[in-house]
Simulated assay, not measured.
Amino acid sequence: MSESVPVLILTGYLGAGKTTVLNHLLATAHARIGVVINDFGDVNVDAALVAGQVAEPVSIAGGCLCCIDDPRQLDDALRALARPGLDLDAVVIEGSGLAEPPALIQLVLASEVPGIRFGGLVEAVAAAHVAHAESGGWDLEQHVKAAAVVLLTKSDIAPPEELARTRERILAANPHTTVLDAPHGAVDPALFFDAAKHTVPEGAQLPLWEIGEAPGEHGHHGHEHHVHHRAVSLDVPAAVDPAALADLLEDPPTSVHRVKAIADVATPSGLRRFVAHSVAGYVTVERARRPAGEPPHSVVVAIGPDDAASSPVDLGALPAAEGDPAPSSPQLRRLTRFL
């Protein structure tokens, strides 16, 4: 069974640097990315800015995604991008500056397009321009409440005290988000999806690609900007405890932005394999095919920025003890309720 494609939502007020973030992601991710560009107005200006870099662009013009008359417009775009033949690593929806994040999230969560899953909301905030944006009606606290990651764009030109004040306000409004400096829109794609999954060496597990190309190589900026991540992984020839895995997915440590698991679980009818994802409190679980007769094998990776101040992630409780009976129905339901 092929994995579903993560759908990321990229939002921020007008001028916050969304398109710069998107261009950096497209130029450095070493991945196949589809894009839905939501332009407010009749002229697709943003579509022109990313032309030539995107694997499969789809544009919805004439309105904000959260208030379009027919939500099927978004479904049509996602359906076009979720075609198995495209084999995309991710889809990015660039919302207009007027988009309300909770409404955008609900549109993606309510989508009936097969083969996609919500991959997190990313909010771009230019700290030096927050006061100006708020004078126009934008609300920092409301817009970051649902964000998996908040990117402080243009952080290289913002006064240090303004950066610190903006960071404090964001974390007060959403203690579970990850706040990252993103000068020139630099962000590590490994925080959101498995970059370059098509080109890793045979046998490698869950590729985590380091940003390799400087934005200057694509004509954007003349300086390199690397945003590093750290990953804690568990790779064991064993089944996992479904309740322990559900706990990690539902309530990961504050330093963890994303959890991915390809896990075998013992059931009364035999071993079953699941692929699970957790991004900022949003959990998805899918069944996966297990080759007949293959011994149990589970891989779990927790990913977060390497500057996060938190204790290491403890994955020691995940493997089921050897000889344990199959988990009870309530234990198993803790995980399968996310299917």
Results as ranks from 00 to 15, higher is better:
residue 228 H to M: 12
residue 92 V to R: 00
residue 144 V to L: 11
residue 226 H to F: 14
residue 100 E to C: 00
residue 153 T to N: 11
residue 284 T to H: 12
residue 195 A to Y: 01
residue 288 A to W: 08
residue 246 A to H: 08
residue 208 L to Y: 05
residue 25 L to D: 00
residue 167 R to V: 00
residue 221 H to R: 13
residue 174 N to Y: 07
residue 21 V to R: 00
residue 260 K to M: 09
residue 174 N to C: 13
residue 249 L to F: 10
residue 313 V to K: 00
residue 253 P to E: 06
residue 95 G to E: 02
residue 99 A to H: 01
residue 89 D to K: 00
residue 87 D to R: 14
residue 308 A to D: 04
residue 150 V to W: 05
residue 60 I to V: 14
residue 185 G to Y: 01
residue 8 L to D: 00
residue 80 A to W: 09
residue 74 L to C: 02
residue 298 S to F: 12
residue 64 C to T: 13
residue 276 A to F: 10
residue 313 V to F: 03
residue 322 E to K: 11
residue 297 H to G: 06
residue 214 A to R: 10
residue 99 A to G: 05
residue 189 P to C: 08
residue 334 R to G: 00
residue 320 A to F: 01
residue 36 V to H: 01
residue 339 L to M: 15
residue 214 A to C: 12
residue 133 A to H: 07
residue 136 G to L: 15
residue 182 A to K: 01
residue 50 V to R: 06
residue 43 V to A: 07
residue 47 A to G: 15
residue 59 S to M: 14
residue 179 V to Q: 09
residue 309 A to K: 13
residue 324 D to L: 12
residue 178 T to Y: 01
residue 238 A to Y: 08
residue 120 G to D: 06
residue 273 R to G: 10
residue 122 V to T: 10
residue 68 I to A: 07
residue 338 F to M: 08
residue 38 N to I: 03
residue 253 P to K: 00
residue 176 H to R: 13
residue 63 G to F: 07
residue 278 S to Q: 07
residue 271 L to P: 05
residue 115 G to Q: 05
residue 268 P to T: 11
residue 240 V to A: 01
residue 213 E to Y: 15
residue 319 P to S: 08
residue 109 L to H: 11
residue 336 T to Q: 13
residue 101 P to Y: 10
residue 272 R to D: 07
residue 57 P to T: 02
residue 84 P to G: 08
residue 109 L to I: 07
residue 69 D to F: 05
residue 253 P to T: 04
residue 27 A to F: 02
residue 44 N to T: 05
residue 279 V to T: 13
residue 29 A to L: 01
residue 3 E to D: 12
residue 117 R to T: 04
residue 119 G to R: 05
residue 114 P to A: 07
residue 223 H to D: 14
residue 173 A to L: 08
residue 83 R to L: 14
residue 180 L to G: 01
residue 183 P to K: 02
residue 249 L to A: 03
residue 198 H to Q: 12
residue 43 V to L: 12
residue 107 L to G: 01
residue 68 I to K: 02
residue 202 E to A: 13
residue 207 P to H: 08
residue 332 L to D: 09
residue 159 P to I: 06
residue 30 H to S: 12
residue 203 G to Y: 04
residue 103 A to Q: 10
residue 288 A to S: 12
residue 241 D to E: 15
residue 136 G to K: 10
residue 245 L to M: 03
residue 119 G to F: 06
residue 166 T to A: 13
residue 203 G to F: 09
residue 201 P to D: 14
residue 157 I to L: 15
residue 179 V to P: 08
residue 159 P to L: 06
residue 227 V to Q: 10
residue 263 A to K: 03
residue 318 L to I: 09
residue 101 P to H: 09
residue 238 A to F: 11
residue 241 D to S: 13
residue 169 R to M: 10
residue 62 G to Q: 10
residue 326 A to N: 13
residue 171 L to Y: 06
residue 238 A to D: 09
residue 231 A to V: 15
residue 304 G to I: 04
residue 112 E to R: 12
residue 16 A to N: 05
residue 70 D to P: 05
residue 10 L to I: 04
residue 145 K to Y: 09
residue 280 A to V: 03
residue 310 S to M: 07
residue 142 Q to V: 09
residue 300 V to Q: 00
residue 8 L to Q: 02
residue 94 E to K: 07
